[in-house]
Design a protein around this nucleic acid. Structure first.
Lengths: 374, 374
DNA sequence: ATCGTTTCCGAAACCGGTTTCGGCAAGGGT
DNA sequence: ACCCTTGCCGAAACCGGTTTCGGAAACGAT
């Protein structure tokens, strides 16, 4: 196992002078101060048995010399590698694709400000995902994990709990109130979507939900139902679909609705991808979006801005989500109480061109009332 | 710095029996065999001074006990953290977004098969990118780096060379023949695109190039020019544009071409995103794609399959690219000769609906000849 | 039988940090 | 003046591996 190392130089220099270009280690700092490395270590780590005087002196010298501890060197003793783990499972539909880069940007930024890095792995099935978690945990590749796309019954949660490894959910899960999470209130968004359409006079409103295995699905469905109730509208089971996360799946779902006896004048989609499918169906049926048929999406994917008419949707700030998630996870790793590590955010409605007044609208007399409920 | 550790149990068990659930370390293996840990270490690392007999014996026991060395524990001595670094810079246009997930999938798969992990960071400017590299190098967060989107004069290359850190380029760069790289032959694709259109009778062919700062731009331009020359066609400077990587930029470029005295009957785009911009321009001008105007793209982004008509393009296999890049990088880290770590791949033409015979075509007599040159 | 060579493994140092333990000196109380 | 704290730091062990060094046993050759 011979390897040409960078530090294999044999130049002679002052024995107390660290070789230029070589990494400055803790002993370099302690030597420079006439202290022992144990003192320097404790000073830098705010041990109470170090006087404030020498603490600042050590800190100053460390800064001056540009000392930065080697995270994997401390890891062997502390057990912390200063890294956040992310296992991205992209199987089936990979609707997560459009947000991935901004999501990563948020995670990376949040991690790096605390001196953490991001260790990621991918998988293409649930089994591989779980195996990846196991090996990453066993080899201690990360101090904690971010779990995107939580599912209603998520096996990752059981695994990480059993291993006693910190983690944070992107999307809360029912019945586990003691877990750290960050979630965007999709239910509220669906509720708002219904109100928006009701004000425009729509009465037959369809709802195309996403994958029922995901925790967001029931939440958004609830928001839709509640919105319909609050608007005094009747929910038609024929206008409810689910498990549509791709364009094709949504195309079929929308086609079914439009063939119903009382077709919808508006369709709300739990994910933008589905909304794009509705666009295709409408085009095939000669319906003009925003005129014959109103559509509202959710997610805020960039493609939505380029279809015609531009898709009105609820934009999720994935950069911010990543930022918050990494912060929550790091605090969880540091031992904060999980129940205090729960955050929600609001999706922002982008009023673009895909909604309009209900066709043949006999100006719903209740129209004005909904405003006050917003 | 008090931290509740998992291993803080005080249960009494046989002194030679590793606690169940605890990680099995090298001393556990050596104890079980009656050897010293130094012998076990050398056996596992194929040192020549270990007899084949004990080598297999050690290996068997290690496997049986499920021993896996802690990468950050070995890193402190070997200097290798067994991790590949990736700094994703998403500024300006982030056209790289659509491929990111599959690209990561390839990288991750390639890395994990060799026991490596992926450490990623993001940035939003060149300066931040370089700073990120510096800090990752200083803290030894990765053993080598993958450089996506190489530029013609890439500051990352200088930085990594100076630091003597292994890396591999995604996209070769002119004048640095001693660097490891993986590249997709975009020039050949542009050449093929011209041939395809020439066969269809097109004579006025426009070319919209991508960002000129990227190394792929001159390559693709050369391919286009060579293709025009080989097809016996004249290049009209008015039909050449560049730095169009977004829909909007391409829209403007295409608009300029179509307003020229001899407008193109076909436009080749260096990136799919630009092709989508051409679609918009065509729509605005009432031109039917594949009929009044032919378009060929490059990249193979998923959106291309959903526009109407579906975009004919050259698909790049980003999963494969990631797979090969990680392999090349790991071999580079292991000390292989860089000149042997250079690979190219071919983009595959997806013949979809965006090309058709040249309008008003007076059946170019040379038409048939191009076939034989393919 | 003697004397080098090899072969093969144990002992111990090492990597760059962290953490425990103990002791010296200054300070406080009586 | 004496004892007991308390504050503060050095010495040394430790984390989980790797690598150097040296020596005992087996081997081969004289």
């Amino acid at each position: 196992m011979i390897r040409g190392g960078i530090g294999a130089s044999m130049s002679f220099e002052g024995k107390d002078m660290p070789r230029k270009g070589a990494r400055v280690k803790i002993s370099d700092v302690s030597d420079a101060l006439g202290l022992t490395k144990s003192t320097v270590s404790r000073a830098l780590n705010h041990y109470p048995d170090i006087s404030e005087t020498t603490r600042t002196r050590v800190q100053a010298m460390a800064d001056k010399m540009g000392y930065r501890p080697l995270s994997h060197a401390q890891a062997i003793r502390t057990g912390l590698v200063k890294s956040l783990g992310l296992v991205i499972q992209m199987a089936d539909h990979d609707a997560q694709r459009p947000f991935l880069s901004t999501f990563l940007a948020g995670l990376s930024e949040g991690a790096s400000t605390e001196g953490f890095t991001l260790t990621i792995a991918t998988s293409n099935s649930e089994q591989v995902t779980l195996d990846t978690f196991k090996s990453m945990i066993r080899d201690h590749k990360a101090d904690g994990f971010i779990l995107p796309r939580t599912m209603v019954d998520d096996p990752r949660i059981a695994l990480l709990r059993a291993a006693d490894v910190p983690f944070v959910l992107f999307g809360r899960v029912a019945g586990a109130s003691d877990l750290p999470f960050y979630d965007v209130k999709g239910g509220a968004a669906m509720h708002e979507a219904v109100q928006h359409l009701a004000v425009l006079g729509h009465r037959q409103i369809g709802f195309i939900n996403g994958g029922t295995q995901y925790s967001y699905a029931p939440t958004r469905a609830d928001g839709f139902l509640r919105g319909m109730f609050d608007a005094g509208l009747v929910v038609d089971p024929a206008l409810m679909a689910q498990d549509a996360v791709t364009i094709d799946q949504a195309r079929i779902a929308a086609d079914g609705m439009l063939a119903a006896s009382t077709p919808p004048t508006a369709i709300i989609c739990a994910v933008d991808m589905a909304a794009l499918g509705v666009y295709e169906t409408a085009a095939a049926r000669g319906l003009k979006i925003g005129y014959d048929l109103s559509v509202i999406g959710y997610d805020g994917i960039p493609e939505g801005a380029h279809v015609s008419p531009p898709l009105s949707t609820f934009a999720v700030d994935f950069k911010h989500a990543g930022l918050r998630l990494s912060d929550l996870l790091i605090r969880n790793i540091r031992g904060e109480n999980p129940t205090g590590l729960q955050e929600t955010a609001t999706a922002q409605f982008l009023h673009r061109g895909s909604t309009g007044p209900a066709p043949h609208s006999h100006t719903n007399s209740k129209g004005g009332n909904y405003e006050s409920e917003l």
